[in-house]
Amino acid sequence: MIGLDEATNKELAQVICTLEAKFNLADLLRVLPISPDTFFYWKRQFKKPDKDCQLKHFISRIWNHDQHMGVLRITQALLNDFDLKVNHKRVYRLMKELDIQGEGYRKKIRKYDSSKGPEGTRVKNKLRRRFQTDRPNQKMVSDVTEFKIPETQEKVYFEPIMDLYNNEILTFAITAGSPNLEFAMKPLNSLIELIPNQPYKQFLHTDQGWQYRHRTWQKKLRSAHITPSMSRRATCLEAV
């Protein structure tokens, strides 16, 4: 509960307007920490039509349809669905007045971190940001990404292997279970069966996720004559 000392002048004025029918106005102004001039200013403001009334209605309508939507997504939805170009700061202010916010911000949710796991072996970054290639299957990349289905809150993990020659997804795996080693190995096993042996050196570039540091992953790569490469931690420019 907000104390009187913490209440804003607007909130105090709303309280007085509510109690004015039952109590003497002079007594209310004497008891509550708000000056008469400030009270009458807000009373006049309350009588004015709310210029944001329609916009608040649209924001509430969008949010009620998907309560996971935050400020930026609602701002974009206003433009897409109602052709209303509104500054995101205004949307934020109105959402605060409506006491609504995206469900994703109401509680801290631990995000998937592939670096946490068995230590394994880290390898050097062999690509060193040289992601361009004119040869198929020469430079490939992979990563495990976590998604959340809004309707069910179910977590889904997706691991593709992409060829940087033409950005083609060569193989992939999807699971709603744990992104364990067995899951991580599926695209790699499919890749080895799919791509032919090339006369040039081949690379598979990843982050430092525990699956990619695992001995089984690296042994499988080397048995297929594919050189592993890893970006450094917290270095987004080294990841595709």
Score class of each variant (00 low, 15 high):
Lys85Trp: 02
Gly117Thr: 06
Ala21His: 10
His68Cys: 06
Trp42Lys: 01
Gly117Asn: 08
Phe58Gly: 01
Thr121Val: 13
Tyr112Lys: 03
Pro36Ile: 04
Glu11Arg: 10
Gln54Val: 14
Asp99Ala: 12
Thr18Gly: 06
Phe40Glu: 04
Asn9Phe: 11
Val86Gln: 03
Ala77Arg: 02
Ile34Leu: 01
Asp113Val: 08
Arg122Cys: 13
Leu4Gln: 11
Glu6Ala: 15
Asn9Arg: 08
Lys116Val: 14
Tyr112Pro: 04
Glu119Thr: 14
Leu84Met: 14
Glu119Pro: 04
Pro36His: 03
Glu119Asp: 12
Ser35Arg: 10
Pro33Ile: 03
Ala7Gly: 11
Arg106Cys: 10
Ile16Ser: 09
Lys85Pro: 00
Leu29Thr: 05
Cys53Ala: 11
Leu98Asp: 11
Lys10Ile: 15
Leu4Thr: 13
Asp37Gly: 07
Glu97Pro: 03
Glu20Arg: 12
Phe39Ser: 00
Leu32Ala: 06
Thr18Arg: 13
His88Gln: 15
Ala7Val: 08
Lys51His: 09
Ala7Met: 15
Glu6Ile: 12
His88Pro: 06
Glu11Thr: 13
Ala13Cys: 05
Asn64Leu: 14
Lys124Tyr: 06
Gly70Asn: 03
Leu29Trp: 05
Arg110His: 09
Cys17Trp: 01
Thr18Leu: 14
Pro49Val: 05
Val91Gly: 03
Asp50Thr: 02
Phe23Asn: 09
Pro49Gly: 02
Arg110Asn: 08
Glu20Asn: 05
Phe40Asn: 03
Arg122Ser: 12
Ala7Tyr: 13
Thr121Lys: 14
Phe58His: 12
Ser60Ile: 05
Gln54Cys: 04
Lys51Ile: 10
Asn125Ser: 08
Asp50Ala: 05
Gly102Lys: 02
Arg128Trp: 06
Leu94Gly: 06
Lys51Ser: 11
Cys17Arg: 12
Glu20Val: 09
His65Ser: 14
Lys47Phe: 03
Lys10Met: 14
Leu28Tyr: 06
Phe40Gly: 00
Asn64Ser: 12
Glu20Ser: 14
Lys22Asp: 11
